[in-house]
């Protein structure tokens, strides 16, 4: 279980890791996009980190909703609305709660993805963050359902996301800016899939560290 205090810690740790990888994400986006993904996310998560400082005692829904609203109003680009929507949908699942159960986590993950799909109208195989997110969710869900616990589920999800990132190298983009490159985008990994992996990795590392 993740309580509201740990939730804030996780999100703040995400902000740290995004900052560390700002250049990497930007370089990946320069290759097939417009070279702002790392800059965008760092701007957003830095603001989130600051915003959450006073919110440790709020409920998980509020924390996630604040994260979402901050991302939406600070990130811009494609990733702002998408990550913003994801956090918002996830937050709705745990509105008013101070604990996130395993069951909640599955629902949140699912809702986040649905939000992204609804907003961005992309599918698996379009070379987007969904190529990391969807396989991550699938293994997360089955692992939880198999009662292997949150940590294992998160670890497997991060691993699946990493594979998803690798997969994005093999395909041409159909959505987002990279789609304008056509086949020229093949061979490059998707920046959004990469940031998704980084985020999931933070979660799994955080949970692993605690045990």
């Amino acid at each position: 279980m993740i309580d509201h205090i740990r939730l804030v810690s996780i999100i703040q740790e995400i902000a740290v890791v995004i900052k560390e990888n700002k250049e990497l994400l930007t370089e990946l986006d320069q290759a097939i996009g417009d070279g702002d993904h790392g800059i965008n996310l760092d701007r957003g998560f830095s603001a989130v980190k600051e915003k959450l400082n006073g919110l440790q005692n709020k409920d998980c829904g509020t924390i996630l909703n604040t994260t979402a609203m901050t991302l939406i109003s600070k990130v811009g680009g494609a990733s702002g609305p998408l990550y913003g929507t994801a956090f918002m949908r996830a937050g709705q699942i745990v509105a008013g709660k101070t604990q996130i159960t395993e069951e909640d986590a599955v629902k949140m993950f699912d809702a986040a993805i649905q939000g992204i799909v609804l907003r961005g109208k992309a599918n698996k195989g379009d070379k987007t963050m969904l190529d990391a997110l969807i396989p991550a969710f699938e293994i997360f869900k089955t692992t939880i359902e198999a009662n292997e616990g949150l940590n294992t589920a998160a670890t497997k999800a991060a691993e699946a996301a990493k594979e998803g990132v690798e997969y994005t190298k093999t395909i041409a983009a159909k959505k987002g800016r990279a789609s304008y490159l056509g086949d020229r985008s093949i061979g490059h990994q998707d920046p959004g899939a990469t940031s998704t992996y980084l985020i999931l990795k933070v979660v799994s590392d955080f949970l692993a560290k605690e045990n």
């Binding site: 702002d36 800059i39 701007r43 109003s73 600070k74 811009g76 680009g77």
Partner: peptide, 12 residues
């Protein structure tokens, strides 16, 4: 006006 080459945010 968004950040350089970045779509502006909905609130703006």
């Amino acid at each position: 006006a968004g950040a350089v080459f970045t779509s502006p945010t909905p609130d703006q």
